[in-house]
């Protein structure tokens, strides 16, 4: 499940990166800007590492018998 967790954090990480860029456009205190900078760099590193080590995973599910039939909608 830890795999799933990091899987999910990838798009969150990119969104956080974009949020940091937007925040740095605002007049934030220098202290905060510097810690956002640190955070941004480690997020960027995280995303790159995740992309570079990514392995396609394929899972086959079987079609369930039709208890959820469209006619119920």
């Amino acid at each position: 499940m830890s795999q799933r967790l990091s899987e999910h954090t990838f798009s969150e990480a990119i969104q956080s990166l974009e949020q940091i860029v937007r925040t740095l456009e605002q007049p934030v205190p220098l202290e905060e800007a510097l810690s956002l900078y640190e955070e941004g760099l480690s997020l960027a590193h995280f995303c790159e590492a995740r992309l570079q080590e990514a392995q396609l995973r394929i899972e086959k599910l079987s079609l369930q018998p039709s208890e959820v039939h469209p006619s119920t909608l």
Partner: peptide
């Protein structure tokens, strides 16, 4: 390749 593909044949 980061994605997880789930196939229902």
């Amino acid at each position: 390749p980061m994605v997880h593909v789930l196939l229902i044949p």
